[in-house]
Computed example of a mutant assay.
Amino acid sequence: MKKHSILTMSCLIAAACQAGLALAADKPHWRYSGPHGPEHWSTLDPEFKVCATGKNQSPINLTAAVEGELAPLALHYRPAGASVVNDGHSVQVNYQPGSYITLDGEPFELKQFHFHTPSENLIQGESFPLEGHFVHADKNGSLAVIAVMFKEGKANQALASIWPHIPTKAGETATLQQPVDASQILPQAQDYYRFSGSLTTPPCSEGVRWLVMKSPQTLSEKQISDLMKIIKHSNNRPVQPLNGRVVVAS
């Protein structure tokens, strides 16, 4: 990612800290379908042009990965206070400071996690009912996202403490009464894919380090349907071309 001014980096972090990695201000408004849908994002604002011109866009179909010497995930998560936001694009849990991952020798603080249904990234062409994005930022504003897939199955107890408190109306926020432990939402088997990508919503900024967990978690059919009733629409960007990028697998 190119060097940015402090102001620009602050804006980028603010953008990533909105549901779906979206900008805080929906100006101009974008959607997941119709004339303001993904195929038109680049035309809605000059700042969104990279949605069409970028060569390292996310999400992608994870195929033909190269086996590499990826370091084990260095997670330093701890239970923390949190709030859950319905912004009309996604459902997002804002995480209080103190949890981070170490990546490429640098700490990346967990800012928030949010959900896309169905999944945005595909694994060997397979789509999942839900994908969680755990968004981290380092001291310079560079971003790293851990993506977790969810398949239908046993109810997810870690999400069960969050789901009842999701606001049903867009624009509303609810403070969670109990601390959230983000580490419990990630799979125990922590092999992953890594690639260079972008935000998956406008402005589609590139330079984001993506870590996609190989092992999916489960959630019940009711948990899936309850979330869909709140979001009211699919909120996944279609997969983007690899353009020669290499996907490395641990």
Rank of each mutant, 00 (worst) to 15 (best):
Q217K: 06
L219G: 03
R237A: 11
I224R: 12
V212T: 00
T218H: 06
V212D: 00
N235R: 13
I224E: 10
G244Y: 11
K222P: 08
L219S: 06
R209S: 03
P238I: 01
Q217I: 01
D226I: 00
G244P: 07
S220Q: 11
K214Y: 02
I224M: 04
R209C: 02
G207N: 06
K232G: 08
S225K: 10
V239W: 01
I230T: 06
V212M: 02
K232E: 09
K214D: 07
G244H: 07
K222R: 13
H233V: 10
K229S: 10
M228G: 13
M228F: 05
Q240Y: 12
V208C: 02
P216V: 04
S234T: 15
Q217H: 01
N243Y: 06
M213I: 06
G207W: 04
K232Y: 07
N236G: 14
K232T: 12
T218G: 01
I224W: 01
W210E: 14
T218M: 08
L227A: 12
K232Q: 14
H233R: 14
L219R: 00
L211H: 08
E221H: 13
R245H: 12
K229R: 03
V212P: 00
S215Y: 03
S220W: 02
H233I: 13
L219V: 10
R245K: 14
Q223F: 01
